[in-house]
Amino acid sequence: MAFFFVTFDINHDDGYEHYPKFVEELNKIRAHRIMNNACLVNVKTGSAKALVEHLKALLEETDRIFAARLDTENSYFLHAYPGTNEWLEHNPLPTPAPIKLDS
């Protein structure tokens, strides 16, 4: 299991409404949104590439996505969305998100 910082640019004029499957998947993997287009995830893979490959299938060709493995013990946010620091303090979750990505 590993923690990742994931950020993305979605380029459709309808915004998130155009990406219901992407939003559903972020919810499924218990992503915690920390900024408009950035979230933290805790998944059963050590590979940022595997995470990006998994999520990019739910986006369009012109969208962008970036993932970086994160050390939560050395991370802290100021003015992030509510619950961010608590998410960092309480992870790893008892059970990581119920998805195993290829590594």
Rank of each mutant, 00 (worst) to 15 (best):
G15R: 04
E86V: 03
G83E: 12
M35Q: 15
I10N: 05
G46V: 03
T72S: 07
N36Q: 10
N91S: 12
A80T: 05
F5A: 10
L70E: 10
I34A: 04
N11V: 04
K21G: 00
H12A: 06
D102Q: 07
E73K: 13
A31C: 09
V52Q: 02
A31P: 03
H12C: 00
E73L: 13
P94S: 11
G46R: 07
E24I: 01
A48M: 03
E86W: 00
R64V: 15
L51Y: 06
E89H: 13
K49S: 11
G15I: 01
M35W: 09
P20L: 09
H12I: 00
E89D: 15
S75N: 09
K21C: 00
V41F: 10
T62A: 11
F77S: 09
P96C: 06
M35Y: 14
T72C: 05
I29S: 02
A38E: 12
F77I: 03
S103R: 02
T62K: 15
K28A: 14
L40D: 05
D71W: 06
A80Q: 02
H79Q: 15
L101S: 02
G15V: 04
R69V: 14
A50N: 11
I29C: 05
S47M: 00
S103Y: 00
E61V: 12
L88Y: 10
V52L: 02
C39G: 08
D13P: 15
D9L: 12
R33N: 03
P92L: 08
H79I: 00
A48Y: 01
I29K: 04
N85P: 03
P20I: 13
E60M: 12
T84P: 08
F77N: 00
V43Y: 03
T95K: 12
N42I: 00
L78N: 07
I29W: 04
H90L: 14
N42A: 01
L58Y: 14
P20Q: 08
E73C: 08
L88N: 12
D63R: 03
A80W: 02
F3I: 12
G83H: 08
R69W: 11
E17M: 05
S47R: 00
V52A: 09
V6G: 07
T7F: 09
T95S: 13
L51V: 09
F8V: 07
N91V: 09
E61N: 06
F77D: 02
L88K: 10
L58G: 04
K100Q: 09
T95D: 14
L59N: 04
R33Q: 11
N27F: 08
N27I: 06
A68G: 13
N11W: 01
K56I: 13
D63G: 02
P92G: 08
D102G: 00
A2F: 07
Y81A: 09
N27Y: 11
M1K: 10
A57I: 14
P20V: 12
T84K: 06
H12R: 11
S75M: 07
T7A: 15
T84L: 01
V23A: 08
A67G: 10
V6R: 05
D14E: 15
W87A: 04
H79G: 13
L78Y: 15
P92F: 10
Y76E: 08
L59C: 10
Y16K: 06
T7L: 11
A57D: 11
R30L: 13
A68N: 11
L88I: 11
N27Q: 15
E17I: 14
